[in-house]
Design a protein around this nucleic acid. Structure first.
Lengths: 344, 344
DNA sequence: CTGTTAGCGCTTTCAA
DNA sequence: TTGAAAGCGCTAACAG
């Protein structure tokens, strides 16, 4: 079913049919209605590829993200999807599993797929090899969750957020506060969050114990359990993401510790599910859906202006400390001299 | 950067360049290498729209699903994404929020977007208006999770699975077993699972109490709490999905009931997160990723043969009862005469 | 093995 | 306001 068929049946030229669809005011109401009626009768749908070929605009956005198995990115993608539809764009998501080679492959795939722009969550903007290429090629793109002075980013102040969270824990009387993270090298977010932790500890005049790094999902709970059974185990855990927080709570349980009575746990991300858990997850909530939405809007806006996005277009969205039930005042234990702000 | 440019620089015809890419054996090794080198130098990427326009194949699959906020579908989409890439296809996902009008809109959008085939999770294949249209238009499609004798479906035996789960609960000594579901009318899965529950209860010679229907996510926990505070509250809950199971556990907690001591909870879906929860979720696990993968493979296979899929291509994948910690033997309470299989 | 060329369906000048 | 026609980049006959 082509524009030719519609034109023939309506007794007008293909140009008129095209105009009737794309510039309704450039044809008389009569012809417009005629064309619309015939098109409907013929069940006509404009051919996207032909239009793209001609206009050099596909109205498709590529989305590169680590995984859909972390609800954070699923929520973000949902936000992207809604905003894209609203803006008249389709999206093609590709997951990378946090692997650099997959990031390259994904970008290559999408570029070959004729996307007009890209939204990406990369491991680390500084070490990414694809970002310079995108810029060199003049492909509009925006980073989500990443934060970097040289790239357009939509993110939150992870560092400040975690520092604040540490401060809260300190106010609750915690002194032995440890941080739990996935592979630190695998993501700039993890690094920023860790820096925030270090800052918070330092601000409180506390020594930061070594980072608890749990690289493998499969062994995370076991690894965490080890740490929780140590003699001077932490009384509070700041986790680099909600999934780790959930696993920490499980590790605590397996170690005979109760959350929050024996161990406080703070997550990061604000996945919706966290609110329905028992204990409800205390977490630093990012506006995941909004991060997606704003990324799309920024990108579409830039593309409408025929430009790429620059670093100064970056957006820092507000985060929120979401109070749950996985955090409580520290109970004094083997270090009674440290008790002060307990009000349990 | 077009094929023309490559041809010119390499001193060959566009046809040769095209062949070098699409049928490497149809050109001499020398010319192939020449073309490849020049293409690389020029950073050439074949134009997908032009190819699609010419071949009438876009190598894009449309995916219609209710939401990405339920990890079940996120896991499935991840499976779809991987299989699609492996098969040389891109995917365009669209979410519908379980709304029929959105399902129509989504299909329309994707068809207009030139997809070669569709994978969809619809509310109800029987009442869907878009499915007949797809078939009439000869568009290859496959349903995921849905189950219907007239359509190609990739699913599990929900009914049997739930019936089995009920049987297990009965063997654990439970008698007052209730089912929790979202809006029953909104999904054929929910209906099938409910039928399985009814069958399980009937097989055990038990009266099935009225379905606990919690239509709204926001008020689900409150609604569930109501039911759990009733005088003759159930000792076990069979939930139509894992999200509801998680909320049921929360409702139990808020009602002062402990899971599994006071209340057993069984979910459905097998979201990965369930294993990390405390208590670990007992659930009927579907192979979500595989459902996605098989859907893609079925579709690609059919399209390769130039045909659409028929109902007899349907796949019934195995489910698994995943034992967790949210289920235990019934403790006798106000009905001591009912005690029998307790071994707690 | 390689080249020439028509044409996929559409938008967009340019004329009428 | 409408139409004729070129051409986006590619593939696939067909010819050589």
């Amino acid at each position: 079913m082509s524009i030719q068929a519609v034109a023939a049946k309506a007794g007008v030229s293909v140009a008129t049919v095209s105009r009737a669809f794309n510039f309704p005011d450039k044809v008389t109401p009569a012809t417009r209605e005629l064309v619309e009626r015939v098109a409907r009768e013929l069940n006509y749908l404009p051919n996207a590829s032909a239009r793209t070929l001609r206009t050099q605009r596909s109205r498709v956005l590529g989305v590169v993200l680590p995984t859909l198995l972390n609800p954070t990115f699923a929520e973000c993608l949902q936000g992207i999807a809604r905003a894209a539809v609203a803006g008249g764009y389709a999206i093609i998501p590709v997951t990378t599993g946090y692997r650099l080679d997959e990031e390259e492959r994904a970008v290559h795939l999408l570029l070959a797929g004729n996307v007009d722009g890209l939204i990406l969550v990369v491991s680390n903007p500084s070490t990414s090899t694809t970002l310079p290429r995108l810029r060199a090629n003049g492909v509009p793109y925006v980073l989500a969750y990443n934060r970097h002075p040289d790239h357009p980013c939509v993110s939150v102040d992870s560092e400040g957020a975690v520092a604040d969270a540490v401060t809260r824990l300190v106010l609750l009387g915690h002194r032995r506060i440890a941080m739990v993270s996935g592979t630190l090298a695998a993501s700039d977010r993890a690094q920023q969050r860790y820096r925030g932790y270090q800052k918070g500890m330092s601000d409180a005049g506390l020594d930061a114990p070594p980072l608890i790094e749990v690289p493998f999902v499969e062994t995370a709970v076991d690894a965490l359990s080890q740490h929780l059974q140590a003699s001077s185990r932490p009384t509070a855990l700041v986790c680099s993401n909600d999934l780790l927080a959930i696993r920490s709570i499980r590790a605590a349980h397996l170690s005979g510790l109760s959350v929050p009575d024996d161990l406080s746990v703070v997550g990061f991300d604000g996945i919706a599910l966290g609110e329905d858990l028992t204990p409800a997850l205390t977490t630093i909530a990012q506006p995941n859906s909004d991060i997606g939405r704003h990324s799309v809007e920024l990108l579409i806006q830039a593309m409408a202006g025929g430009t790429t996005l620059q670093a100064d277009a970056s957006l820092l969205l507000p985060h929120a400390f979401r109070d749950g039930e996985s955090c409580a005042s520290a109970r004094e234990r083997q270090h009674p001299q440290e008790e002060d702000a307990a009000a349990s």
